[in-house]
């Protein structure tokens, strides 16, 4: 048994295990109860695909596949970042609107991006989790926005 053949067997076995793992993660991403599970699974699939490309570049002796692995790593990072920006933005906004209109403390979901909230300050977040029903009370709260001057030409 030569060394090349041994490398072939080793890499083929590793690639097979990784393919099976990708399939299992895909099942988890379908089950995943919330959007966060799905994004997490996409991130993990990205990692596994990067490893697969790195192994393939050694197995096939094609050095340009490593370039593709680096680009894939960059794209998977960018994906998580932009999805995070979209979801953090949207849900933060709705939370604060509902809480402020009702004249009570904002619900336990604290805005991390806002300036005044940080992990160092003490907040009684445990006590201030409202029931899910109380969030539905003021649906029309968005109509009362402060008037801003819009320039007309």
């Amino acid at each position: 048994m030569t060394v090349d053949l041994a490398y072939q067997y080793l890499f083929t076995g590793a690639l097979t295990v990784m393919a099976v793992l990708i399939g299992i993660i895909l099942i988890r991403s379908i089950i995943g109860p919330r959007i966060i599970d799905r994004i997490l699974c996409i991130n993990m699939i990205g990692t596994l695909v990067i490893c697969t490309i790195a192994i393939l570049s050694q197995m096939l002796d094609e050095s340009y596949l490593t370039d593709i692995a680096i680009i894939y790593a960059m794209l998977s990072f960018l994906t998580v970042l932009i999805l995070a920006s979209v979801y953090i933005r949207r849900l933060n906004l709705t939370d604060e609107d509902e809480g402020m209109k009702a004249g009570e403390q904002p619900p336990g979901v604290q805005a991390f991006g806002a300036q005044d909230v940080s992990l160092g300050q003490t907040k009684e977040t445990q006590a201030s989790v409202p029931a899910a029903g109380s969030l539905q009370q003021d649906k029309n709260s968005r109509e009362t926005v402060p008037q801003r001057e819009v320039p007309h030409d």
Partner: peptide
């Protein structure tokens, strides 16, 4: 552009979202 100004609510919405909840505060 100038001819396509937003309504008050939309303007308020973008201002709040883009300045307060940007990821660039991280």
């Amino acid at each position: 552009d100038r001819k396509n100004q937003r309504s008050d609510y939309e303007d308020y919405y973008t201002v709040r979202t883009d300045t307060y909840f940007d990821l660039s505060t991280d």
